[in-house]
Design a protein around this nucleic acid. Structure first.
Lengths: 343, 343
DNA sequence: GTGAAAGCGCTAACAC
DNA sequence: GTGTTAGCGCTTTCAC
């Protein structure tokens, strides 16, 4: 096995005490210049690294943060994790990632697991199935640092970082309207999610602004957050089978947008001729699609970074934090062929 | 802050000693049935969780493994990490991910960082820039567990998990040949990488089998592993500008395949009419591309799993491991429009 | 200016 | 059957 030097080894080698070594290494003023130099040079020479586990045990912090997301192999979340990691790394934390696969049970198990690992705080994006947020409420009340991002718990007053989902949805919907569509459907995620509600509101607001009535029949929710292909296919087919079939659809989630394209292609429905399309996604290759996709992009990397900064600030705060912010960052609308009305 | 119960709290509350609690909790036979029950019920009640940091300090293991990859926001690696995490999670390890962004310096820093965190072992996929593997050699010789996956170090005899890159390349190239192409270029990664060499060999073997001469001019390396867009664009343009311009190109990396498509589209080069294309990628949406892409997929998830299993087995081995395996898993060739010869 | 020792949470060897 | 204690690596208070 691989051994590394401890403070004790250095102390023994140099014939001083461990406390001297400890102090010398952090340049304490109490240590004589030559001793200090001696110790520091020796430590350097043997490539001494303090044992972070011992430090953690001492100061009762694990220097790790737990992340709860639905899926890593998802463009939005892999980008967000990238942001999380970049901040955590710089501030000396490491990141433990867990996936819910949109299941509430799995989410609960993950949180328990992370707590048993004594993470110093939690970065959470709720699963599509989650309605009961009491475990977070309990922890939050006990003073345990939690930051929600993307899919937040409305009833827990802690730091939150989200995209401006309302505006993102509004913009995309308005774009479809301005392209000339009036019959616009909305395919979206589980109603449990904050993002679903916000995006639906943005969708409705855009319709209202342009005097278009919201038709409940044009709204399709996929309760499993796009994890179940058949559910999406069912919803898409239902839209296509309507008497007053929509001409366009605005899609409220990354996975749904991609899967919807895939289903339409399979069914031989031409985009945008038969059905125009705009949707949320963070995929970087949608301009290579046939047709190129009109999308709402979220600054996932920055969202991950901000959430992590807030979390670590909370963790390291000397005083109980009581003042919580909700950061809202802009989305980006990119128009491509899929949302255009062809002659 | 958030406090949790320790063995000491339980001992005090129950008026027994800490060792009794410790033993009772692991159901030791030395403890009387009623004491055991008492302790276990109390621990359950207060939701006791052993402090993993204390355990780590005791048995000199951090129960964490370090991962070195070039990029997380890459389909192949995010899928591999998924596999890594799934195994690590089940075996009680957590995973610290670092990214090299294809830089050797960054890789060195990352390895140092991971070692300073006292990870129990390393899962490594080399950066495109790396030629000097001495840091790994040094660690390996000291008995430190390392498993290479995907981009391996040829000169270090440790566990390795790779796709059958030779065959994957061979199959894709042969497919192009069978489609009727003879002038086939190869756009690929840095020559430093094991995968580059293996895929090139597969490419050459397929040409040879069908009596086609290998033209060095048709081989383009992107030394930065596709991180620099201009480099790829330069290579693609060079191929297109050749007197004896290739009719098809086989691409040896995920990022290059996607970027090449993007460049061809920008240049107005029609695929497969003007240039047919087949390449390695693990993107799940390439069937939505225009045109749908012919690809070689790697079982990234399984590769991640296997590598992690081997690593943890090595870590937990009671004896120094001397017998190392190289696991080679099959790739999957999926034919779509991009590789077909149109009339 | 430096050393001794306690303590963080847990386990295990050694009492009794 | 249960308690006492040392020790994992490090910091820090208290001595000198």
């Amino acid at each position: 096995m691989f051994e590394s030097y401890t403070i004790k080894d250095i102390a023994k080698a140099l014939g001083v005490s461990t406390s001297t070594v400890s102090r010398a290494l952090k340049g304490s003023y109490e240590i004589g210049a030559e001793t200090k130099k001696l110790v520091q040079e020796y430590a350097e020479k043997v490539n001494y690294r303090p044992n972070p586990i011992a430090l953690s045990l001492k100061d009762q912090k694990s220097h790790s943060i737990g992340v709860v997301v639905c899926e890593v192999a998802n463009d939005y979340f892999s980008q967000a994790i990238n942001g999380i990691e970049s901040i955590a790394y710089n501030l000396g934390y490491h990141v433990i990632i867990t996936q819910t696969h949109e299941s509430f049970d799995r989410e609960t198990v993950n949180v328990q697991h992370l707590l048993s690992r004594h993470v110093d705080g939690l970065l959470v994006s709720l699963s599509a199935q989650t309605t009961d947020t009491s475990q977070y409420k309990y922890l939050h009340e006990k003073g345990f640092p939690i930051v929600f991002f993307d899919r937040i718990a409305a009833d827990i007053n802690t730091h939150r970082v989200v995209a401006d989902n309302f505006k993102g949805a509004f913009d995309a919907t308005e774009l479809l309207i301005k392209s000339g569509f009036k019959k616009i459907a909305h395919l979206t995620n589980s109603n449990n999610l904050s993002i679903t509600v916000e995006r639906l509101n943005g969708f409705k607001a855009a319709l209202a602004k342009h005097g278009i009535e919201f038709k409940p029949g044009y709204l399709k929710n996929c309760e499993h957050g796009g994890m179940i292909y058949d559910e999406i296919e069912f919803a898409v087919k239902a839209l296509l089978a309507m008497d007053d079939r929509p001409e366009a659809v605005f899609i409220g989630s990354d996975r749904l947008t991609i899967n919807c394209m895939s289903i339409l292609k399979k069914l031989g429905v031409k985009v945008p001729d038969d059905l125009a399309l705009a949707g949320f996604t963070n995929s970087e290759v949608v301009d290579l699609f046939d047709p190129p996709l009109t999308v709402v992009r979220q600054p996932a990397f920055q969202i991950g970074q901000k959430a992590t900064e807030l979390l670590i600030k909370t963790i390291e705060s000397k005083w109980p934090v009581e003042d919580f912010t909700t950061e809202r960052v802009d989305t980006l609308l990119i128009e491509r062929l899929s949302s255009q009305k062809l002659k």
